[in-house]
Design a protein around this nucleic acid. Structure first.
Lengths: 190, 190
DNA sequence: GTCTATAGCTTGATAGAC
DNA sequence: GTCTATCAAGCTATAGAC
């Protein structure tokens, strides 16, 4: 049960957030996870693509569980959505704007240049949308609208990460969070 | 007035959208723009960073002018916002999901790893927000709210590019566009 | 499973002829 | 201003001893 494999995946996830897919070298990943090159290719014979696919799936799942936990802990869905945005803002500040979406950077890099990885990112986003949509529907939003609402809220969260990281300020994330709580509240009333 | 310099910047912009900053090599850029290596360093003695900064500024300005033209051509601001999203969706489909935001991919790549380029992307986004906010204010939105509204609409547009490119489908962009027109209309009524 | 060494290629950048 | 040749360093990937 050597933790080497897990260490490699964790180091890859962190490097992907800081430098993206092309900017993260396998040597750098090995150094960051204190793993030799041979171990990386032992666990991931498919090389960088296989490692990236597993890293994206793993951090995508972890991120989904985090959001679900925040939504389920809140007294109502509107508060829960607000908590996601304030939590994202706090995490950004606490991590010096490094700990953001673990998928977006790589997703944009590979969208037009690596079909296998593009499919992986599409699957992760689809899981996120389904997860959020089911929460909105359970909270009383018309099921057909619930999916659209999930798409909008998650897209706005991604835009918030982009603007907040670029500006090194969380004012964008906070403004977007306010708008999204209003938007979800309006959807509940209709 | 050798067009070599312009060709280099244009090729760089296209490659940044398709493969990002780290994924675009200078040799690739020279090949795509039919320019020799020596010319690239003649025009951009600061190397890849200087070329990237100028490319980002140039395509950021062009993108802003495009959005402003769409907004100003529309009969009202709500229609104009809707036109931006349907236009983005059409452009994505027509370009096989390659022609999207010219800044976002690079902005995420450099946010935590290249301070000089991070500042450039922050400045571009700030210009976009100011431009959109002034249109919203001119349409009758309370000036304090106009800036927040601009941030939300642009962030949602960026999230729409991300989800639509990953899924190779414009349904996300279209759903987000519908929500944003509703959101802008609501801001006008309040 | 772990580790070292290295092949083969590409990267960003430079030098110097023209 | 243009172009070629080249450098040192980085990359992904592999081979093979332990």
């Amino acid at each position: 049960m050597s933790g080497t494999r897990e260490r490699i995946v964790e180091a890859t996830s962190a490097l992907f957030m800081e430098r993206g897919f092309s900017g993260s070298g396998l040597k750098q990943i090995c150094a960051a996870s204190a793993a030799p090159m041979g171990s990386l290719y032992h666990f991931f014979p498919g090389g960088k693509t296989e490692l990236a696919a597993e890293t994206l799936r793993s951090s995508g799942r972890a991120y989904q569980l985090l959001v679900e936990a925040i939504l389920d802990a809140a007294p109502d869905i509107v508060t829960g959505v607000g908590d996601c945005f304030t939590g994202a803002a706090e995490t950004l500040r606490a991590s010096d704007y490094a700990d953001a979406c673990p998928i977006a950077t790589v997703a944009l890099e590979v969208a037009s240049s690596d079909e296998a990885l593009r499919r992986v990112t599409a699957e992760i986003f689809e899981n996120w949308v389904c997860s959020a949509a089911s929460r909105f529907a359970a909270a009383g939003v018309n099921p057909a609208r619930a999916r659209e609402l999930a798409i909008v809220v998650l897209a706005a969260l991604e835009g918030g990460f982009l603007f907040s990281r670029a500006a090194r300020s969380t004012t964008a994330m906070e403004a977007i969070g306010r708008s999204m709580t209003d938007h979800v509240a309006a959807a509940l009333r209709s």
